[in-house]
Every structure is written in C-alpha cells, then in structure tokens.
Amino acid sequence: MSQQPEADAPTDLTIADLAPGMEAKVISLQAVQEVRRERLLAYGVAPGRTIQVLQRSPATILKVDQTELAIENDVASRITVTEPNRMKRAFHHGQRRRKRRFRRGLKFLQRRKRNKR
C-alpha cells in the first residue's frame, strides 16, 4: 500500500483523488520536486500528518493544523496519501449538503479504482 511511487506516475491515492471534506494521512512527497517539498514540509504537509481537503477547484485547498494552503492540482497529484477516513460525521440538520458531497466523493473514489483495473 505504501510503497514509494515513481517520480512521474504516482500509483497510490494522492491528494488529487480526495473529495472536499475528506481527511487522510500523508504517505510520501518523494515525487514532488525538492525545493517545493521542503516548503511543503515546512508548512506541515509531512509524512504521517493528517491533512484535510477543503476545495478542489480552481486549486486544491488543504488544511494542515490551523494552516490553509493553496496548491496547484499538479502538485497535489504528487503527494500520496492513505485511504481517506470517513468524513466527519454530518448528522445535524442543515448539513445535508456536506453529506451529499461525501457520497459523491466516495463514488468518485470507486470509479477511480475501477478505471485503474
């Protein structure tokens, strides 16, 4: 699951595969170019740390600790992550939209997996 991907073709899940609202742990940034990797590490996007995706377009917006970070989707697709956890429970009324988004996100993941096979 967590083998090191080659520089150009990340094989595992990457941040670019996560839907808004999902949380996952970073596995590796090896595919990111060195200077950028250093900066990402400095911001806290480091192996083992949990990130949350807030938005995917026009750029990927991440939340790490209390920092919000905008990165281009190209960079996002080079950062591999673990399977996303269930989205934070969205029980309360008025949060239906978020729940819908979560389901859409799941479908997205499944489709991706199918395509890969």
Binding site: I61, L69, A70, I71, D74
Partner: peptide, 10 residues
C-alpha cells in the same frame, strides 16, 4: 514555470 504554493492567512 513554478506551480502555485501559497498559504492563505485567515
């Protein structure tokens, strides 16, 4: 070209 990587302050 270097891609965007920017912190968004509150």
């Amino acid at each position: 070209r270097s891609p965007l990587l920017l912190e968004l302050p509150p």
